Amino acid sequence: MGDRVSKAEIDQASEIHVLDYLQTKGEPLLQQGDNYYRHAEHDSLVFNTNGKWYWNSRNTGGMGAISLARELYGMKFQEAVRDVNGLKITKTMDFSKDTNKEFIYPNHYEVSSIENAKNYLVNERCIDEKVVLALRKHDLIAEDKLKNIVFKWKDKVGKIVGADRQGTTKMENKRGSFKQIMAGSKSDGGFTLDIGRPNKIAFFESPIDLVSYYDMIRPDHIRLLSMSGLKDHTFTTGIKETIVECNERNDTFEKVIIAVDNDAAGEKFSQKWEQILGDEMLQIDVPKNKDWNDDLKQQRALERQKQNQIVPPFSKNKEAEYER
């Protein structure tokens, strides 16, 4: 009879909203106005809150999660149905038309321990355990019931205005693990870490790159801000807010630092803003490898290598040889 799926399986998969499916798969989505979302890595792939999608560069489109799974992942129809039904769908997308709706952080998803998050950040990402525990102490990270790390976006009064979720286990996708911006997060916000009295601001593509940079450089009096991608709106808002806060403290704002990935997209972003801001205000920090976490991993490997190269004590024969 061949490979088949039942009508009940098809009906079940057909009820899953395409955006909920993508969120659960860990695909990065950007809200574009009231009714549209765009894929952060395939900018011509757009989605309507009514469930329709269209991939402009491929001149193709469809309705629902099944058709999208076939196009995006190259699945057969039966594979797509099973993939949609096999996920624990995270229904976090807000399809209401109230764009001014306040972000509500889902506290009930948090667990009391951050053991999985800590193990991932320390052992997989090579971040100093003391840094991880400090982030926890200041309520900037948490762990949810699905063992994801939650990076909380907080405004200047400590209110949570959004969050990134980062998986701690491997997934079968090109990013290797689950990544998601929580639905309803402030469109021009991002994970922020303030050190001292910030009189400069540095921008990154992800919270883990931000923390890796801090762990390596340990800068003073700086605001570190993750754009969760390359977002002009977040970039400009971050600069304006930091300058305003400096003025309120009668401090002089020093500079903007772009510390995005060492790739074509990062270079294009840096060059664009270099032309706008000029050399005096802008500093560009480029990682040696693809990103700052790769640099941190390399640094930790070199540190371990040096520790292993400690000269052992002389053997008795060597001591006798040395005395002669």
Rank of each mutant, 00 (worst) to 15 (best):
E245K: 14
K174G: 12
C126S: 08
T92Q: 12
L22G: 01
F235L: 03
S113C: 08
R136H: 13
D139P: 07
G190M: 05
L210I: 03
D263M: 01
E102K: 14
I310W: 09
T49E: 11
S113A: 12
G184V: 02
L140E: 10
Y54W: 15
T24I: 06
A8I: 15
A117D: 04
K156N: 12
K170T: 12
I114T: 00
Q78V: 10
D285I: 02
E71Y: 09
N116R: 09
G278H: 03
D83G: 05
V256S: 03
K147E: 10
Y109T: 14
M281G: 09
I181G: 09
K268H: 15
L45M: 08
P198M: 05
D139C: 11
Q271E: 15
K91H: 13
L140H: 09
Q166L: 12
R304N: 13
A142V: 06
S226A: 09
I141T: 04
G86S: 01
A265D: 07
K52W: 14
K7N: 14
E143N: 00
C126E: 09
P313Q: 02
G238I: 04
I195C: 06
R218A: 09
R175Q: 10
E323Y: 12
V157S: 13
T92E: 13
G184C: 06
R197G: 07
L121P: 03
D295N: 08
S187H: 14
E115V: 10
P313Y: 00
I243P: 02
L22H: 05
I243H: 06
G64E: 02
T234Q: 06
Y73K: 11
F47R: 02
G64H: 00
I114K: 03
D3H: 13
R324W: 10
N59G: 13
K255N: 15
S112W: 10
I114P: 01
Q271C: 12
R165F: 01
S96K: 08
D232C: 02
K272W: 04
Q309T: 14
G62A: 00
Q78G: 00
K137Y: 14
V131E: 05
K255W: 12
Q12C: 07
L225E: 01
L225Q: 07
N100Y: 15
T236A: 10
P198T: 05
A202C: 04
Q275V: 10
D155Y: 08
F269S: 02
D164S: 09
I104G: 06
F77K: 07
